[in-house]
Amino acid sequence: MEQNVELLLDICISEMQKGKSIDECIANYPQYANQLKPLLQLAEQIEDLPLPTSSFEALSSALINIGKEMEQDTAAIEIPGALVPSQRDVLPPKGFASPMKKWKSFFFLNIFRKPGIVWALSIFLLFAVIFSATTISANSVPGNILYPLKLVTEKVKFLLTFDSYGKAELRLRFSDNRLNELVTILQQSNKLDTTLLKDMLDEAKLALSENKIPVNKASIFSDKLSSVNAYQKAVLENIRPEVQTSDRQIIDEAINMCNMRSRWMRRMMDEEHQEQFYEPDSTHQTDTQHRKKSKPKRMQWGPGCDWME
């Protein structure tokens, strides 16, 4: 009989777990109702007990311990006798998403653990520093820390330019840079830097010596050279009263050179114009023939410029 009650109690508990009430369950077994009811009430009370929950830290700690255990096992299998690194003792292996670790994975510094990102950032920073220094050095003058960088940058730009027209343009820009530096130093120290003046004229001369400029760009280059020449001459004339009397002769010679260059430029342009007008076939000349023909007409940087030599 007791076995029957045990079985009936179990059946009633199962039915209650499926949603039936105590009375509904025992209604089928009225002869055992008095015996079953208090037991079922107790069962219901036990089920209603609030579930104890473990602490978050305890679960994390358990997972970390498991991770540590697994790391040791792996080390023992893969590298017999090898010591497990101290960090591995603390951190669980991949796959153990410890709740305490989940939020940490969003911490931005974690990106620096990836070598690829570190390399990319390093290269980016290097370029940023170089770019910033180059930009700042553009306004530097002789005597400044960044001035050598400015000169190196100019040389690099020149070396990386492969066509004659580009090289000639760069020469003109460098010539302009020297003039600006000369003016800045004159304003700062009231002293004429003859080296800069010489470099300015040299760069312009070297621009003219670029003899492989394509025919279609020759007129554009001539215009640029004319405007640079006119600008430089105007600036030199402006600063002339400000320089010391002993230096004025040098300024005069430089102005004179600018004048000579202007005249030479005008003559060259006139001759070219006449050639195009009277010799239509000249357009069919090869580039080499054209350069051979124009070479003797180049300006001679002649006497009167001893200070430049």
């Binding site: 104890p52 358990a62 498991i66 991770g67 697994m70 669980p92 796959g95 153990f96 998403a97």
Partner: peptide, 23 residues
Amino acid sequence: KDNRALGRLCEHFYSKIYRFIYY
């Protein structure tokens, strides 16, 4: 030796075992 599966297994049973021991 799938760590992810092992982690999930432990997480799944941790609370059940805890309650079992707690009482």
